[in-house]
Amino acid sequence: MKDGDENEQVRELQARLRQLDYFDRAPTGFYGSITAKAVSGFQKKRGLPETGSVDGATWQRLLGMTKKPTADELKPSTTNKLDTPDARCMTGRVLCISKESRTLAWMIDGRVVSSMDVRFGSENTPTREGIFSVGWKAKEWTSTIYHTPMPYAMFFSGGQAVHYSADFAARGYNGASHGCVNVRDRAKLSALFDQVKVGDKVVVHW
């Protein structure tokens, strides 16, 4: 396993690293810089080559020191831990969205006002990355392409929007969006929807 991988084995890796206090957040199944750093830390402590990638020796050593993760360990209901905010999120009113930690942070002048878990599009319908702005909002909306409800939608790039997803609330990271940024906490998003204004900045980053 290495940087850029995304699968259930990565999720198991993260859960096992979490058992040993190397990975301090809910498993996401995505192998990014945070996971690589955790793997390097584990490798260093065990005298293994510090590659940040998982080879056979690293995996076997980890298996020997940990137990098979439970369903709750693999997909806990707790809120994902925020990354250090992207530099582009530090000024003004910003929806700061991290693909690696799978979080949305509502920030004003560099301060996190609220945060929530999010999920993104699949490989076939990826969520675009970059700097955008909220073009328009709709408290009640149904996708004209996929005919699915999109409550509390805040559109930032064409048809891509931040919105509540009942599917995300029910299935978690077993599913994916069609490119939108899904939120599973309806109450948090409802409060955020009332605060965000058309024109506010949106930053989607790794």
Rank of each mutant, 00 (worst) to 15 (best):
R184Y: 11
V203L: 12
Y146N: 05
A187L: 05
P49N: 13
G199S: 05
Y146E: 07
A105L: 00
E123D: 10
N182R: 14
D185S: 15
A161W: 04
K2M: 04
T144P: 08
F23C: 03
G172K: 01
V203E: 13
E140Q: 08
K44G: 09
F168H: 08
Y164K: 01
K99W: 03
T91P: 00
V181H: 14
G179H: 08
F156C: 04
P69D: 06
Q60C: 02
C89G: 12
R93S: 14
R11I: 01
F156A: 05
T144H: 12
G199H: 02
G175I: 10
G199E: 04
G41L: 03
R128Y: 14
L13Q: 06
R102D: 08
D117S: 09
Q160N: 10
F155E: 07
Y146S: 08
V54D: 15
E50M: 07
F168G: 11
L62G: 14
S101V: 00
M1Y: 07
S53H: 12
E12K: 07
D185K: 12
E129I: 05
R102V: 03
T125N: 10
S101T: 02
T28H: 04
M116E: 12
K81S: 09
V113Y: 13
H205K: 06
R61D: 14
M154Y: 09
A176Q: 02
A138V: 00
S122T: 07
E129M: 11
F120A: 07
R186Y: 15
M116T: 10
T148A: 10
G64A: 09
F193Q: 09
L20Q: 06
S157C: 05
W106D: 04
T51V: 01
D194M: 03
A71L: 03
S101A: 06
N174D: 14
A191H: 13
R11G: 05
E6C: 02
R171K: 14
P149I: 00
E12A: 09
S101I: 00
R18I: 00
G47L: 04
S33T: 05
R61Q: 11
T144L: 04
N174A: 11
K139P: 05
V54T: 07
A176P: 00
E140Y: 08
F120G: 07
R16C: 02
G135T: 04
N182M: 08
S53D: 15
E73R: 06
L62M: 11
G29A: 01
L74Q: 12
L62H: 13
D109K: 02
T35E: 03
E12W: 01
K44D: 15
L13H: 10
S53V: 05
F132W: 13
V198G: 13
A38G: 05
S190I: 00
E50F: 03
R93A: 11
L62C: 10
T125P: 00
W141H: 15
C180M: 04
V181G: 12
R102N: 07
G64W: 03
R102G: 07
K197F: 11
E123S: 06
D194V: 01
F42S: 09
W141V: 00
E123A: 09
T148N: 12
K201S: 15
G121C: 02
I108E: 15
G175Y: 08
G92F: 01
M1L: 08
T78K: 06
V134N: 13
K68P: 09
L48C: 11
P85C: 14
V181D: 13
C180F: 06
G199M: 01
C180P: 06
Y146K: 01
E129C: 05
Q60S: 15
Y146T: 06
G52Q: 03
